[in-house]
């Protein structure tokens, strides 16, 4: 298996406050890694370092064996970003653009595709998430679950090697959570490499190849879901799972 992501000695501090305290993580092609942990433990900060939304204070992030981003290397960080897609908690669709325009923007402006190709790609992806009929609509006309599915498509249109999710269902109404989780499941089964921060333990159990328990800026424990959920090795993991399950 080829390695898509390699993180070594990652640290991040905001001023005096160290939030990520030395994290190593490898993700193989096609793997789905789910990160769980209490809020404030640094999960968002960590995942944001993976596409250089936050510049690491120390350590390095390497994607696909290609572009390594060492702390402080801005050019490499920008290159890294092109290979990594990201889906945020609050969708962040561009409100003044149609669904189609949202999806086509980056591939066209970055010269990845011409307009016709980008349009075909966008429509095909929308079809897959069941939103082909909303292509001409605007974000404000969609439900939260629909907006999040569009956000996933927008990230996919750049053909990322790795897709990051930061609590993609936390802002959704309970009845629309599943429509987004189902899209993510489908992506996982098609072999998309994903790192997902979520509180959806059911998703972690069913879809993850590996669960990472994060606390206090460190990886406390990692393993296949069956192991983490039924026989966690660490007391802190047990405590956390008891509080959420």
């Amino acid at each position: 298996m080829s390695r898509v992501l390699q993180v070594r000695g990652l640290r991040k501090h905001f001023g005096e406050h160290e939030v990520i305290k030395g994290v190593d993580l490898d993700v193989e092609a096609g793997e789905v890694v789910v990160i769980i942990g209490p809020s404030g433990s640094g999960k968002s900060t960590f995942i944001r370092c993976l596409n250089s939304l936050e510049a690491p204070s120390a350590g390095d992030v390497q994607v696909h064996g290609g572009s390594a981003a060492h702390a402080g290397d801005r050019k490499a960080l920008a290159k890294l970003r092109e290979e990594v897609g990201m889906v945020f908690q609050d969708y962040t669709l561009f409100p003044h653009m149609s669904v189609l325009a949202n999806i086509m923007l980056a591939p066209v402006k970055l010269g990845r595709m011409n307009k016709a190709q980008a349009r075909d790609t966008a429509l095909a992806l929308l079809e897959r998430v069941g939103l082909r009929h909303k292509a001409e609509g605007y974000p404000a006309q969609l439900s939260g679950g629909q907006q999040q599915r569009v956000a996933i498509v927008r990230a996919l249109a750049m053909k990322p090697k790795l897709l990051l999710f930061d609590e993609p269902t936390s802002a959704l109404d309970p009845e629309t959570v599943n429509e987004v989780l189902n899209v993510m499941k489908a992506l996982a089964s098609e072999g998309m490499t994903m790192v997902v921060v979520t509180h959806e333990m059911g998703f972690a159990r069913d879809v993850a190849d590996r669960v990472v328990f994060f606390d206090g800026g460190r990886i406390v424990e990692t393993g296949p879901p069956a192991q983490i959920f039924s026989q966690p090795a660490e007391a802190r993991t047990r405590q956390f799972l008891a509080s959420v399950l």
């Binding site: 970003r81 990201m86 945020f88 561009f94 923007l105 980056a106």
Partner: peptide
């Protein structure tokens, strides 16, 4: 203009001028 718009543009690898001209300005203009 919400900071999230900037992050979304950044995460898509859009360049700063793309963000300014195609996203921030039109939203601000309204």
């Amino acid at each position: 203009v919400e900071w999230g718009m900037h992050e979304a543009a950044f995460a898509l690898s859009l360049r700063p001028w793309h963000y300014f001209c195609l996203i921030a300005l039109p939203i601000a203009f309204r």
